[in-house]
């Protein structure tokens, strides 16, 4: 088993980060082109704790290394990940746990991501992935598979940070515009009321 972990800081409030997190894989994020689809399988709020639990299916397209393809046969370019996430609004924590559902007989990847506030304007992102090659046979091959994935995680983490920054910036702009529109609507409404009263 190999472990990849990574911590980042985003200069946005936890509320902003946790909201933008739902649209992390969208056209605004030009760095996450390997994620082709995100589907929500189920979603519920626990009435006792207020925790929002969500199950999602994430479909990725990213070329596997040639040597791995030749070993496993084709069809390795599309993969799917199942993710369960928990938003606790009381402790202000988002926890996302995910596991691969594709090639699960060959390898097991379990990732945990946590978003938690550092201050009113800063949010910490922590990611940890445990990668275990299951295929029987030579340890050397297992090691290569694990190393390839750790490398892939490292590359995606750098791109992920950059991509999420652009989603956060765009989200802030869109929310500001929306507030502006609401304000204008309110002003127009008030102006209308004044006219009516006159």
């Amino acid at each position: 088993m190999k472990v990849f972990s990574n911590t980042e800081t985003f200069n946005y409030s936890w509320e902003e980060v946790s909201t933008a997190n739902w649209r992390k894989y969208c056209p605004w994020n030009e760095k996450s082109t390997h994620v082709v689809a995100v589907d929500t399988i189920s979603r519920s709020v626990d009435p006792a704790t207020g925790i929002l639990r969500t199950e999602r299916l994430i479909t990725c397209r990213q070329a596997a290394p040639e040597w791995l393809k030749s070993m496993m046969g084709g069809g390795m370019d599309e993969s799917q990940v199942f993710e369960t996430s928990y938003v606790d609004p009381k402790t202000k924590t988002v926890t996302m746990v995910s596991t691969n559902i594709t090639w699960s007989n060959l390898l097991n990847v379990q990732e945990t991501v946590v978003y938690s506030p550092l201050s009113d304007h800063q949010t910490k992102f922590h990611q940890e992935a445990k990668i275990t090659a299951l295929a029987g046979g030579w340890q050397r091959i297992k090691n290569s598979i694990e190393d390839t994935l750790v490398k892939r995680f490292r590359e995606n983490a750098a791109k992920g940070k950059e991509g999420f920054e652009s989603v956060l910036a765009m989200s802030r702009r869109v929310f500001a515009e929306e507030r502006e529109r609401e304000k204008m609507g309110l002003i127009r409404e008030q102006a209308g009321n004044i006219r009516m009263a006159a």
Binding site: I41, D46, T49, I51, R53, E55, L57, Q80, F82, T84, Y86, D88, T95, V97, S98, T99, I101, T102, S104
Partner: peptide, 26 residues
Amino acid sequence: LKERGIDKLLEEAREELKDSDSTYMG
């Protein structure tokens, strides 16, 4: 999901992550 046979894989993955419910749902 059913057409693509993913429903069964989801069931397995859900089972695998079952423990996180008790950890994170308090």
